[in-house]
Write a protein that binds this DNA or RNA. Structure first.
Lengths: 323, 323
DNA sequence: GTGAAAGCGCTAACAA
DNA sequence: TTGTTAGCGCTTTCAC
């Protein structure tokens, strides 16, 4: 059994409260005593039990981070940034994957609720109502989903979609497909709204699609059949899958069809053709999410909305429409 | 503030212990009473506080899962499998990323130690000594690293490397490069040992390399300069990066150089050329790791070694040597 | 500056 | 079947 505060107290001839202070309020204890306690603690391999500490303080110094699919390369940069940022502030991040299942998501939140001080909800699939209900149990910061009354971080994917469509029309494309994402995805809705609002475009909406390479692969036939020359995919994974699906059908990118993705994941930069895409500020979002959450622990916590800019990165998967 | 066991007790006119039993040993309480308590609990939105429960039971029902780099597509299938498997057994998995930094890894383990019942250590970068020391604080299961005395899951990458080399020699390749991985990687050592043991091969060892696409990209020049016709890369990411690097230098895969990866990640199945690779049973490893850990909680827990088979998947990145 | 005591939310004997 | 009591490891008044 690991050493407890009591062991340290006994071994150093002071009372538990003094040991406690040595760790949580060192300035309140005599330097000499403190050093002695510290030495004994070191000797015994004592480390304060965070869970027990949380019971009295109400602060676990843990943050939960919930994502729909950890294997989507969109998330790791966000996760890593959040972890690093949190660690620098003496918080730890626990990541959990919901497998795109709202019910698992809910369970996870409830489990996490008492073990963390707050939860970062990334691209949640839960209904607004459910989120509001769960919010009674634990503070949230929501990423990529508009939630009134909760601290929210949005990446301006609508603007990105607009840029992408403009890029395509600039290349002469008139008939363009939008590959939408999962039902309930805020991002997908934003993209759709932006695309619909653009003039001079015949928009074909295909979906919902799974936000994966498989999703893109599966919709390739429909894309070909739709007779479009340009495509804006829900994300890079879908775009990559689509390109492969088109390739299998003898359709070339960008020669026959231009494809734009969203996210700017690493493998999009290495695949051939290198992907033209809407770059999402994922790392910044991860850091900001942590900041907002910690901030919300303080007094007078005001729900905040932070919108981060996106940008279009033009690479090789888009080209002029063939005449 | 969320409802506590006491609120429920008061509101349902029983004592806290009865409420406690209703949740942790329902068969010990009268059906009628139980229903009443359950109704009140539901009404108040009460959920047992796992952290507090852990304090008395010594069981958190949480499992920590530590990986070196969550953005390496090798891990997500393992993570997902472990999470699903654990959830089915009423355990929850918290994932943390060490960023390939042994010091972060150590900190993480210590933080996790008291908040989980055990830790799954995947491809740890820590020294054996450090691992043994930390093992005093929390039970481990180690994946992809040989640790005497600890439950261990190994994927037989040595055998996989042997198959890969044989595949290459079978295609007529004689001069073959092995792109090794990070220092301290058990996998890398196994691959090297297996490759060295193969007869009739001129082996060129290049590395250590970062286990990423960048690592592969960076070593492409050396590969060309070495005059090999076949390459076994540390993992698929390195293989993919290498192929891109070769492509940039006008070297074709598999026409000029054959490349074999390790892991069988999804994007290797979609990139062109589709990657020939050593498939790792990651999902099985994740499930088995959870099993081993839970098992080790029981009586007479014996340290175990499980070795999982790998296999060679031949796709398009390898071909006959040019005459 | 340090000690004593109460209590965080819960479980686990032991009684009744 | 249910209540009583002690206590898990720690923090936090309040005294001294």
């Amino acid at each position: 059994m690991a050493a407890t505060i009591r062991d340290v107290a006994r071994a150093s001839g002071v009372h538990v409260s003094t040991v406690s202070r040595t760790f949580s309020a060192p300035h309140l204890v005599n330097t000499e005593t403190r050093n002695r306690v510290l030495a004994v603690a070191e000797d015994l391999g004592y480390r304060p039990n965070r869970a027990a500490r949380a019971l009295t303080t109400g602060r676990t110094h843990n943050i939960g981070l919930i994502v729909a699919d950890i294997s989507n390369p969109f998330f790791p940069p966000l996760i890593k940034a959040a972890q690093a940022h949190a660690r620098a502030r003496d918080y730890h991040v626990f990541v959990a994957d919901t497998d795109e299942d709202p019910q698992v998501e809910e369970e996870l939140i409830q489990t996490l609720a008492k073990q963390v001080d707050g939860v970062l909800l990334c691209s949640p699939r839960l209904s607004n109502r459910a989120i509001e209900r769960l919010h009674a149990d634990v503070p949230f910061v929501v990423v990529n989903r508009r939630m009134k009354g909760l601290p929210t971080i949005l990446m301006d994917v609508g603007e990105g979609a607009r840029l992408a469509i403009e890029h395509l029309t600039g290349l002469g494309h008139r008939r363009i497909a939008l590959l939408s994402g999962p039902v309930g995805s805020w991002t997908s809705g934003e993209m759709r709204a932006a695309a619909t609002a653009t003039d001079g475009v015949e928009l074909v909406i295909l979906g919902p699609n799974a936000p994966t390479e498989q999703g893109g692969l599966a919709v390739a036939g429909e894309v070909v059949a739709s007779g479009v020359t340009g495509v804006l995919a829900y994300n890079d994974l879908v775009a990559i899958g689509l390109i492969e699906g088109l390739y299998e059908r003898g359709v070339r990118v960008p020669d026959d069809i231009s494809v734009v993705g969203v996210d700017d994941i690493v493998s999009g930069r290495l695949n051939r053709p290198k992907l033209t895409t809407v770059a999402m500020p994922t790392a910044a979002a991860g850091r900001m999410a942590v900041d907002l959450l910690l901030q919300s622990f303080g007094e007078g916590a005001t729900p905040t909305l932070a919108t981060l800019d996106t940008s279009l990165v033009v690479r090789e998967s888009t080209g002029e429409v063939r005449t």
